[in-house]
């Protein structure tokens, strides 16, 4: 199972929640599968989806799902201690761990080799970390949404990308409609 198949499965589960989505093909796939004003697409700035999601969760009470990638979490590993030490029980970090930099041609990341992001997240102090198979992501995410506890999900999947168009929405439009959805 590849990332786009996970996104397709979880789309009905996340569509009514605030979602911050990782740069590149992940955002393109989510945008093509189920564009929503509650989706904040990152068009640049690799690594900050989890930080933006945490800031958003700390600032307001609605549930926030940050959909991140293994490569992006590796480039901003400092995010995990910050998440662990600033409790936001309305925050779910879903790391789609395909063991590669998918957007740039599936080059392997260290998460696909010896490094376990699950173990790293636990060592950073995140106390509710769940690693699952791609096939179980929907169920695990539903359970996390039903609970009121900050959750980090590491979904292990295969690498591969669906061919989707580039997002041409203006960034200020993405941001504006997202903020309106936050307030709604």
């Amino acid at each position: 199972m590849i990332r786009s198949e996970i996104l397709r499965e979880i789309a009905p589960v996340i569509r009514d929640h605030l979602v911050v989505c990782n740069i590149g093909i992940p955002s393109q796939e989510l945008h093509a599968i189920d564009d929503q004003p509650t989706n904040f697409y990152m068009l640049g700035t690799m690594g900050l989806a989890s930080s933006i999601g945490l800031g958003l969760a700390l600032a307001q009470p609605k549930k926030v799902i940050a959909i991140d990638g293994d490569g992006s979490v590796l480039t901003n590993l400092g995010t995990l201690p910050t998440i662990a030490n600033n409790s936001a029980n309305n925050y779910i970090l879903l790391i789609i761990d395909n063991g590669s930099y998918g957007s740039t041609g599936d080059q392997p990341t260290y998460a696909g080799k010896k490094t376990s992001l699950t173990a790293v997240a636990k060592a950073c102090g995140c106390d509710n970390v769940i690693e699952c198979r791609a096939e179980d992501t929907k169920k695990v995410l539903e359970e996390a949404l039903a609970g009121d506890r900050m959750t980090v999900i590491v979904s292990k999947c295969e690498s591969g990308n669906a061919k989707m168009p580039v997002i041409t929405l203006d960034p200020v439009v993405i941001r504006h409609r997202f903020m309106e959805a936050v307030k709604a």
Binding site: A49, S51, G55
Partner: peptide, 9 residues
């Protein structure tokens, strides 16, 4: 990144 999220919140 945290500030961007907090602002949108």
């Amino acid at each position: 990144g945290l500030c961007a999220g907090a602002f949108m919140g």
